[in-house]
Computed example of a mutant assay.
Amino acid sequence: MKQFIKTGVLAVLVAFLTFSFTTNTDKKTVKTDESKVVWKGYKVTGSHEGTIAIQSGELHFNDEVLTGGAFVMDMSTINSTDLQGEYKDKLDGHLKSDDFFGVAKFPTAKMVFTKVKATGKNSYQVTADLTIKGKTAPVVVNLSVYGSKATATLKVDRTKYDVRYGSTSFFDNLQDKAIYDEFDLVADLVF
Rank of each mutant, 00 (worst) to 15 (best):
F106N: 14
K105F: 09
D89E: 15
V140N: 15
V126M: 07
F101G: 03
A178P: 03
L66W: 06
G50N: 05
K133C: 04
N142V: 12
A187S: 15
A109F: 03
D188R: 12
L13T: 05
T7I: 14
K96D: 07
D99W: 00
L185G: 13
G147F: 07
N142C: 11
V44F: 12
S35I: 01
F16S: 02
L13M: 01
D33I: 05
D33C: 07
K88I: 00
T23Y: 04
D74L: 13
V44S: 13
K28A: 12
V126Q: 05
L189V: 10
K105V: 03
E58H: 14
D26M: 11
G120S: 04
E86I: 15
Y87T: 13
D89Q: 11
T131R: 02
T108G: 00
L91R: 03
G50D: 08
L95S: 06
F21E: 03
L17A: 12
Q55S: 11
Y161A: 01
T159I: 02
I54W: 00
A152E: 01
S56C: 10
A128L: 13
H94F: 12
Y180H: 13
K2V: 15
M111D: 00
N62D: 14
T153C: 00
D82P: 02
T7W: 05
G93H: 12
V65M: 06
T23D: 07
R164C: 05
S148F: 01
Y42R: 07
E64M: 14
E58K: 10
A150Y: 00
K105N: 09
K31Y: 07
K117F: 02
L83C: 05
